[in-house]
C-alpha cells in the first residue's frame, strides 16, 4: 500500500473549557472510504472542521497534532495557502443542504464562484463545467437547473447540488458530514449510492461522518469509532462490525435496528456522553460501561492492536463476535 492520502496524527482540539477532540489519529488511502462514527457531541464534526481549518475562530483551536495531505502539513498553513487546499484538494459536503447553500444565489453561480476562483475558468466555461457536474451528480435537465435557486429544488436534489459544489474543482478527498441525515429515508440510499459511484468513477477518497452504523455498513472500507472526543476503536469495517472489541462499539451495534425488523424496543446505552470540561478520569466510557473494573477509573487506555488487526482503546476488550457475519 502506498503512502496514505490523508494522515492525521494526534490531532487535539481545545476550547476554553477543555479538550473537545483528543489525540485523534487515522489515515485515508487513495480511493478509500473511512467512516467516522459516534453519537452527537462525540467530536466527529469538530474533527472534520479542524482538518480544513474551519473551526470557529476564538472558541476552538487545534492545540496539538498534525494533518498531512499527500505528505504536506496543512494545520499551520496561512489563509491563502489554506484556501488553495479547501475546495481544490478537499471538498466538503454538509448535513443540511437547505442551510448550507446560499438561498439568494443560483446553483450555477455557487459552483461557478469556486471553479472560477480555483481553476481560473471564464464565465462561459464555468457554466459548462457546472452543467456537466450537475449531470454527473444525477440532476435531471442540468442545463435548466443550473439557473435554479436552492429553494426551487427538492431536498434530495439540493443535496446532489451541494455534492456538485464540493466536487467542482475535482478534489482528491471529500469530507461528508452526515450527508444523508437531513434527508428522507427513500432518498438516503440514492445519495449514498451516488457517493460510492463517484468514488468508483473519480477515485476520490472519502471521510464519511455519521452516527448511523447502517450507513457505514453500506459504504465504508474502514471505520473509526469516536467517543467523547477520542477514538475508541478503528479497523476494517467487516471486522469491527462483526467482532467489535470496545464495549462502546459493541453497545452501538446492539442499538442498531436489525433489517429483519424485530418487535419491541431497541436496547439503549444507559447514561449520557460526557461534556467537554467535565470528562471523567480514566477511560471516558467507564461510567456507562458494563465491563467497568477499578482500573478503568484510574488510567486512560491506549489504542492497542487486537488479534484480528483492529485497534481498540480498552483494558478489557470484548473478544466474542456479536454478529454471525457483517452485511
Amino acid at each position: 500500500m502506498s503512502a496514505p492520502l490523508l494522515d492525521v496524527q494526534g490531532l487535539t482540539v481545545a476550547s476554553a473549557r477543555g479538550t473537545v477532540v483528543e489525540d485523534v489519529s487515522f489515515t485515508i488511502g487513495q480511493g478509500e472510504v473511512l467512516g467516522l462514527v459516534g453519537e452527537s457531541g462525540s467530536g466527529k464534526t469538530v474533527t472534520c472542521r479542524a482538518l480544513i481549518g474551519l473551526l470557529p475562530a476564538g472558541s476552538l483551536a487545534v492545540t496539538a497534532g498534525s494533518v498531512r495531505l499527500e505528505g504536506r502539513e496543512i494545520t499551520r498553513l496561512d489563509p491563502v495557502a489554506l484556501g488553495k487546499v479547501r475546495g481544490r484538494q478537499i471538498g466538503m459536503i454538509f448535513q443540511n443542504p437547505s442551510s448550507h447553500l446560499d438561498p439568494v444565489m443560483r446553483i450555477g453561480d455557487q459552483i461557478g464562484l469556486a471553479v472560477r476562483h480555483h481553476l481560473g475558468l471564464g464565465r462561459r466555461e464555468a457554466r459548462a463545467h457546472g452543467i456537466e457536474l450537475l449531470r454527473q451528480v444525477g440532476i435531471p435537465d442540468p442545463g435548466a437547473r443550473i439557473d435554479s435557486y436552492p429553494h426551487e429544488l427538492s431536498g434530495g436534489m439540493r443535496q446532489r447540488a451541494m455534492i456538485a459544489t464540493a466536487l467542482a474543482c475535482d478534489p482528491k478527498l471529500v469530507i461528508a458530514d452526515e450527508p444523508t441525515t437531513a434527508l428522507d429515508v427513500t432518498v438516503q440510499a440514492q445519495i449514498l449510492r451516488l457517493l460510492l459511484d463517484l468514488r468508483d468513477r473519480r477515485g476520490v477518497s472519502m471521510l464519511l461522518i455519521t452516527h448511523d452504523l447502517g450507513v457505514v455498513a453500506q459504504t465504508c472500507d474502514r471505520i473509526a469509532v469516536m467517543y467523547a472526543g477520542r477514538i475508541a476503536e478503528k479497523g476494517q469495517k467487516r471486522r469491527v462490525l462483526a467482532s467489535p472489541h470496545h464495549p462502546y462499539t459493541q453497545a452501538l451495534i446492539r442499538c442498531q435496528p436489525a433489517s429483519g425488523g424485530g418487535v419491541g424496543l431497541l436496547p439503549s446505552i444507559p447514561g449520557q456522553p460526557p461534556m467537554a470540561g467535565s470528562m471523567p478520569r480514566g477511560c471516558r466510557f467507564h461510567p456507562r460501561c458494563e465491563r467497568m473494573r477499578p482500573a478503568c477509573r484510574e488510567r486512560q487506555p491506549d489504542l492497542l492492536q487486537q488479534a484480528d488487526g483492529s485497534e481498540a482503546a480498552c483494558f478489557f476488550p470484548v473478544s466474542e463476535p456479536v454478529l454471525e457475519a457483517a452485511s
Binding site: P79, G91, S99, H100, L101, D102, L113, A114, C169
Partner: peptide
Amino acid sequence: IGSDQAMAARSRGLPESVVFRRHVLPN
C-alpha cells in the same frame, strides 16, 4: 458571517473577502 452557507462557501476555498461580498452582503 456565522451562517451555515458562509461556512460552506469557505469550505470551497473562497477567500473571506469573496465570501463577504458574494454571500454575506446580498443575504
